[in-house]
Simulated scan of single mutants.
Amino acid sequence: MYRSGHYGVALLAYAPVLYVLASRGHVAAAAGGGALVWVLTTLPDADQNVPVIDHRGVTHTLLFAALVGAVVGGAASLVPVSAVDGVSSATLAAGAGGLAALAILAHLAADAITPMGVAFLWPLSGKRYSLGLTPADSRLWNGGLFALGVFATAAAALLATPLY
Rank of each mutant, 00 (worst) to 15 (best):
M1P: 15
G5C: 09
H6I: 04
H6A: 06
H6P: 00
A10T: 02
L12P: 00
Y14H: 12
A15T: 05
A15V: 08
P16G: 08
L18V: 01
Y19S: 03
Y19G: 13
L21N: 06
R24C: 00
G25D: 10
H26Q: 15
V27R: 15
A30V: 06
A30Y: 03
A35W: 00
L40S: 07
L43I: 12
P51W: 08
V52E: 11
I53H: 00
G57V: 01
G57Q: 02
T59Y: 03
H60C: 02
A65H: 05
A66V: 10
G69L: 07
G69P: 06
A70N: 05
G73V: 14
A76W: 04
L78K: 12
V81W: 02
V84R: 05
S88Y: 06
L92H: 08
L92Y: 00
A96S: 07
A103E: 12
A106Q: 05
A106W: 08
A109V: 08
I113D: 15
Y129A: 15
Y129N: 06
L131Q: 12
L131R: 10
P135A: 07
W141H: 11
L145G: 11
L145P: 08
F146E: 04
F146C: 07
A147D: 14
G149P: 05
A154S: 12
A154T: 14
T161Y: 15
Y164T: 13
Y164H: 15
